[in-house]
Design a protein around this nucleic acid. Structure first.
Lengths: 249, 249
DNA sequence: CGGCTTCTTGATCAAGGTCAACCTTTGTGG
DNA sequence: CCACAAAGGTTGACCTTGATCAAGAAGCCG
């Protein structure tokens, strides 16, 4: 990752944190987090933020833009583990397990908050409520993993794609980044394919099917969900329980 | 779950906790955990410990035996998310997110420690080091999920099976439950199949292939790994970094 | 206007699913 | 201790989904 200058954002002024999705911080917590934040960094599209095996990467949060977290599998094929959206942590593994076993690459211009003014141990000791909220978030993340695992083993290509569309749309919506039934979707076909484990050719056919049935379409870097009910039925997508608030640093 | 009587095990006498795999607890931590533990419960094979959607299940740890954590997917098909082994938490989700989205069923006779003498919030406030260790464990769990996701999308049936064998063997070995190149493996073909998303018929063929090549065999409820190197090569199974210690309650 | 990369469409192929028969083990009641 | 039932496991034939290979069509930018 090559650090590029970016307008420094003070934690107290962070607009992201104010979104209803995120758990409000007490004054003491904001002060602590502000001390923890040591840089605000810009990264250009297709640049790596972290590479597999890297040690000592500091804890970061993605502030703006899209990134992918990926690994290479059998035959060197890329598998995208998740899309990293604003508010998501980057390299939490590194801070506690010593090294990361995945790479993270910016897809769009990205801004990152870097936290190494205090360690996680200090955070856990000083702010147990915040720590608990972070722990909760991990459990929620695992819940999504579980859904994907089940879906992956019992569903077909359409189900995979439907889940990706719905889950991504909802995550953006929670962050105030969706608009009606449209949200930004700055992904190439190859990115989508590598996320759900399809070939780009078959993905193309699957996308065509959803478009033909007027369920969902990709136009010009945006995802349009025209028939959410039908899309949801394709994956047994659970009705939105009002999502609980996430922790954010 | 029907509670059956079981010999109560005091935390101070817990033999599981003493295994080198687990992080030692300070005296104060042991005292806290002992206060947290409110029951020691036995469950019979094929009995549910938790069912999907259940609310208010207390945090538990599996003390002895094997259980499966599963969900039903599209078409009602069962997908086994993980095998629960001694020392693993059960229903951590419930304690923090309110309800569980999976079921847990005993495969063998099982003993459980039940913890609801203190809440997680109290634990986080009183013992930040222990809390951090629990957080770390979640991150490690996610690392395994990541590996499985990549393997699932880039590997074939043999790779899935090889990973399951190696990962399960290693987890048992860390707990002192393996013996040489043999470990207990009390699973039906249907359990294995539902874990890796294969039909029992195709699993049967895949097992036969591993047996024919003298790589690994299931005999009489035990897994024999006769050629670990070849098995590992089938999945690009990472060399064992000395596994870090896990937290345990 | 070339010369990229990305996307789509078609034809063929293979891994693994499904269906069906059969074999083997475990269990149960007489 | 045997007879028979039921569950679990294996094997074979056929079919489906999605991968692979190959050729074009669209964009995109110099």
């Amino acid at each position: 990752m090559t650090a590029t200058n970016a307008e420094y954002v003070q934690c107290a002024e962070c607009v992201l944190r104010r979104k209803p999705l995120f758990r409000p911080l007490s004054d003491a917590e904001i002060k602590f987090v502000a001390e923890m934040k040591t840089a605000h960094v810009a990264v250009r599209p297709r640049e790596h933020i972290i590479e597999t095996g890297q040690v000592g990467a500091p804890l970061m949060t993605l502030y703006e833009g899209w990134a992918i977290r990926y690994r290479r599998g059998i035959g060197g094929r890329r598998h995208i583990l998740s899309f990293v959206l604003p508010g998501d942590p980057v390299a939490a593994e590194s801070a506690l397990l010593g090294k990361v076993e995945y790479s993270v690459m910016a897809l769009t211009p990205v801004a990152l908050c870097v936290f190494h003014g205090h360690s996680m141990a200090e955070l856990f000791a000083a702010h147990p409520d915040l720590a608990l909220a972070l722990y909760r978030d991990q459990l929620e993340g695992i819940r999504s993993f579980d859904f994907e695992a089940v879906n992956g083993s019992t569903g077909d290509a359409v189900a995979q794609l439907a889940y990706l569309f719905l889950h991504t749309f909802d995550r953006l919506d929670e962050r105030g980044l969706a608009n009606g039934n449209v949200c930004p979707f700055p992904l190439k076909r190859a990115d989508i394919a590598d996320r759900i484990g399809l070939s780009t050719m078959h993905l193309s056919r699957t996308l065509a099917a959803l478009k033909r049935q007027r369920i969902a379409t990709l136009i010009d870097g945006n995802l349009h969900i025209s028939n959410r009910a039908r899309l949801a039925r394709l994956v047994h997508y659970p009705a939105q329980d009002r999502a609980a608030q996430h922790a954010i640093l």
